[in-house]
Design a protein around this nucleic acid. Sequence first.
RNA 1: GGAGGAGUGCCCGAGUGGUCAAAGGGAGCAGACUGUAAAUCUGCCGGUGUAAGCCUACAUAGGUUCAAAUCCUUUCUCCUCCA
Length: 410
Amino acid sequence: MEKDLKKQIEVACQGTEDILVKDELVKMLGISIKENKPLKVKLGLDPTAPDIHLGHTVVLNKLRQFQDMGHKAVLIIGDYTARIGDPSGRSTLRPKLDPEVIDKNAETYMKQAFKILDSEKTEVVKNSEWLQPLQLADILNLTSRFTVARMLERDDFKKRFNGNISIAIMEFLYPIMQAYDSVAINSDIELGGTDQRFNLLVGRELQKDLGQRQQIAITMPLLVGLDGVSKMSKSLGNYIGVTEKPDEIFGKVMSIPDSLIIGYYRLLTRLPKTEIDSIEKQITTQGENPVFAKRNLAKIIIGILYDKQQAEDAEQHFDIIFKEKKIPDEIPEFCISGEDITEGRMSIVNLLVKSGLAESNADAKRQIIQGAIKANDVKITDINLIFNTQGLKGMIIQKGKRFFRKINIQ
RNA sequence: GGAGGAGUGCCCGAGUGGUCAAAGGGAGCAGACUGUAAAUCUGCCGGUGUAAGCCUACAUAGGUUCAAAUCCUUUCUCCUCCA
């Protein structure tokens, strides 16, 4: 266990958005060191989707840092809360999920979370374990401790309320259930994104009400997505999944706006603060081209999710395609089937649509007109072009800089 | 239960009888530029068609009209106020 209190505090606070309450955290860490008693650090994950992305890893990274300092990570699989759906940051009620789907999601979630976490030092529990057996009387008891006014203090509820958008009563139950999780495991610290702030605080209140020591709530900033505008989310498509291929991750990191680089360092790399500060200084005041920092960032992220070697490979791959503008060696294959061929011929437009490079015939034509399409590295300008299918075997069709298809005939 | 407001393209949002496939922004795609899939600039951005055009689309179903996202009615959904 890390014995240096100062260091512990620094690591604990690094990159956080908010700590409620910081003084208490300092005290708590001090006691923990003195008594050589690790703290229970809680993180709840609702398995509402099968995959996690870098946005989720922000908080996982923080948990990992606590693990590395010798504390105990308690990962709560919100299999029961997932049925309600966290209303945080939402403007509409979440769709309900089937328990089977939730279980399945939970499985892949775990696997992916352990790309970040140290599985040896993690306790995993499902909250159905204690939420399922609750009787109505228990629930009434819990709900009686909170008021509607208190619920409406929460920003997103308030916004919905004021903005004439519906709030299901059930949604009020979500924070209470999450709070009850904290009570059930008697947590010392709970981690979450900024959108979790309210939920984490309700946990504190409930613990106090039930005579437990209040947990410290640590919130992490939400990771901005690849578009540089909205938070990273699957539904917006601006995300990097942790199971994506290294090449893909590298490319996607390279596509973030330069303004996001430092934020990504802080939230995704676990590098010491001083190091990140110096990178920031190099870019902002010493005129260093951000591309280097960005490449390095991409490699670090891949290194965490895979390993160093694969990170190097991904970088090389990127250079081959985008600096030397060569064609990558792994290209998705597209197999032409008989019905697409008329009298041994197939039009370029049809080929683009069928291979998924274009969304519609109109889109295919547009792309050709804009000069985006190449066949075997030769630009195509004629939207009426028709191929003899024999000649298509092994042909490489390219759209723009980064979409390729290798043609095959069955 | 009563009174009133709202529902527009992937998202936000303008539009209140024709000039609307619908302003603007965001996202997306492409081109130029670049040591970046960054920034910036330019173009595209419902389908079909070489094109004229045709089809589909402004919650839903009908109606008025030469003509409707825009007017009327039905249904659905959401909200506000009153009780």
